[in-house]
Design a protein around this nucleic acid. Structure first.
Length: 497
RNA sequence: GCCGCUAUGGUGUAAGUGGUUAACACGCCGCCCUCUCAAGGCGGAGACUACGGGUUCGAGUCCCGUUAGCGGUACCA
């Protein structure tokens, strides 16, 4: 007996790692770290039809990116099926389970669900159906098995009484035995089923706390029954409220696509700590006002007591590119983008520049400092590292678009047709091409020409970046350098109406 | 159908064992800063705490009911 905390994340590789799974993994991980425990990863790959090697890798990649590497594992549930079968056989021998020779019916998900409702309606809701094989003498059953007859193994659920457990989040849970059917442990083809497998594995791995999604809450009673039948200590349970899509719909890969996949966040320029921070706040609160928390602060503050009981809505708008995911997640990422050490940010932005083919070798040699300064200049306005390669394109390439709105707004004054090249001439002659020198050159020039400096400044910004928004104009000039500045000012004159 | 869970502004959450004008963050609006946009600072709008009954001097907080959403009810996980 040991009171070491041992928790596990047990995804089935039937899809990539989604946000709900990531949050479950995170809470397990935080709980383990908080209590000096062990975080185990167990891939539940017994559904060979729907599982794939690729998905396993996807989950592993996602967890690694999030920094949630397991202390033990990954283990694969498929490796333990013999133990699952042995456990079921033992229960049969002890009279706690029985062979059911009822032939298996094949049906797809839809018809199965329809049948459940029909059956419930017909029986007035009782889950129990009398099973003729429940009390078949073991010897008789064994002879039929020996004769090659197929049989499923069902748990003998007591007819009287209630099952109860104290959930660390939802409190005391009770369920009448009469509402629990004799669940199948092993299929007639010998395949162990979920409820049996998890319990056997959790016992084997000495799991102390089962932290998982609320979708397992009612079925936990079945698992408690299995623990008891097996004579094993029952772990503590903590069920997490579900994450829903806008409109309180179920959040799913099928209907919501890539917004729910962790890899999307990685690819679109999220910082893993920002996503972790955001996810931690979905359904959990430290009880204080502080929301931006480092990993260590999260560990320090984390407690199962702070977990909310109601499901949280994860907001996003698939039709609005700038709000492709939850606003608060985006804000959180921007917050991290601004606050993180520049030396850590640069390599991340570099990756994005590479995938957008905006990378130059000099960024690693003589333009190294320039790259860092430019990233620093832009970071306060961007929300993801990908923004540097998209919104920031004019800073890294001469091939960029002039935004129609920006041109319309800032290049509409016909005088600019001459002023822009005129400014270029002046800047070409400035001795030290610095922020201040460029500024005074521009101000002198605008005074001579009798126009407001603001007209030239805003026009120049659009001429230089194709945009109407961005850093201070003289910072842009210095960033682009004399050559590009002069060239762009001249060529943009053609855009003036 | 039956069983269970949940219900605080648009969203995420706070409001020790019931006790003054329901707090914070995101988002939104305005002002300041300013060459624009962000960032930052300041301020504002937005919740009769799903609805209806109780208990109580007093309820977001306790009880009952209703409704809604979600989960489960499979020889799926």
């Amino acid at each position: 007996m040991t009171d070491t905390v041992r928790v596990r994340f047990a995804p089935s590789p039937t899809g990539y790692l989604h946000l709900g799974g990531a949050r479950t993994a995170l809470f397990n991980w935080l709980f383990a770290r908080k209590h000096g425990g062990v975080f185990i990863l167990r891939i539940e790959d017994t559904d060979t039809q729907r599982s794939s090697e690729e998905m396993v890798q996807g989950i592993l990649d996602g967890m690694h990116w999030l920094g949630l590497d397991p202390d033990e594992g990954p283990f694969f549930q498929s490796a333990f099926v013999d133990q699952h079968r042995a456990a079921a056989r033992r229960l049969v021998e002890e009279g706690k389970a029985y062979y059911d020779f009822t032939p298996k019916e094949h049906a797809d998900d839809r018809t199965v669900k329809a049948r459940i409702v029909d059956r419930g309606r017909a029986q007035g809701g009782a889950a129990r159906e009398p099973n003729p094989f429940r009390d078949l003498p073991l010897e008789e059953a064994l002879t039929r098995i020996d004769a090659g007859e197929a049989a499923a193994i069902r748990l003998k659920v007591p007819e009287q009484g209630v099952s109860r457990f104290d959930d660390l989040v939802f409190g005391l849970q009770e369920r009448d035995h009469s509402d629990i059917e004799d669940l199948v442990l092993i299929r007639s083809d010998g395949h162990p089923l979920y409820n049996l497998s998890v319990v056997v594995d959790d016992i084997e791995m000495r799991i102390s706390h089962v932290i998982r999604g609320q979708d397992h809450l009612t079925n936990t009673h079945k698992q408690v029954l299995i623990y008891e039948a097996l004579g094993a200590p029952v772990p503590q349970f903590a069920h997490l409220p579900l994450i829903m899509a806008p409109g309180k719909e179920k959040l799913s890969k099928r209907t919501h696509g890539e917004v729910v996949s962790v890899t999307t966040y990685r690819d679109r320029g999220f910082l893993h700590d920002a996503l972790i921070n955001y996810l931690a706040l979905l359904g959990w609160s430290p009880g204080s006002d502080k929301e931006v928390m480092s990993r260590n602060e999260l560990i320090e503050k984390f407690s199962l007591d702070g977990i909310n009981k109601s499901s949280a809505i994860f907001n996003f708008d698939e039709h609005d590119p700038s709000n492709w995911t939850d606003r608060k997640a985006l804000w959180m990422n921007a917050e991290y983008l601004r606050a993180m050490p520049l030396t850590e940010l640069v390599p991340l932005v570099a990756e994005q520049l590479k995938t957008f083919h905006l990378w130059h070798e000099e960024y690693e040699s003589n333009k190294r400092d320039w790259l860092a300064r430019t990233i620093d200049l832009l970071r306060a306005r961007y929300r993801t590292t990908q923004d540097f390669a998209t919104l920031g394109r004019p800073y890294f390439s001469d091939e960029f678009e002039y935004e129609a709105d920006a041109v319309k707004k800032n290049l509409k004054d016909h005088r600019l047709k001459d002023l822009l090249p005129g400014l270029a001439d002046r800047l070409e002659l400035v001795e030290n091409f610095t922020h201040d020198a460029a500024e005074s050159a521009l101000r002198v020039y605008s005074e001579e020409q009798g126009v407001k400096a603001g007209l030239l400044i805003n026009a120049a910004r659009t001429a230089l970046t194709g945009q109407s928004v961005g850093p201070g104009m003289f910072d842009i000039i210095v960033t682009l350098g004399r050559q590009r500045t002069v060239a762009r000012l001249r060529s943009a004159a053609a855009l003036v109406a």
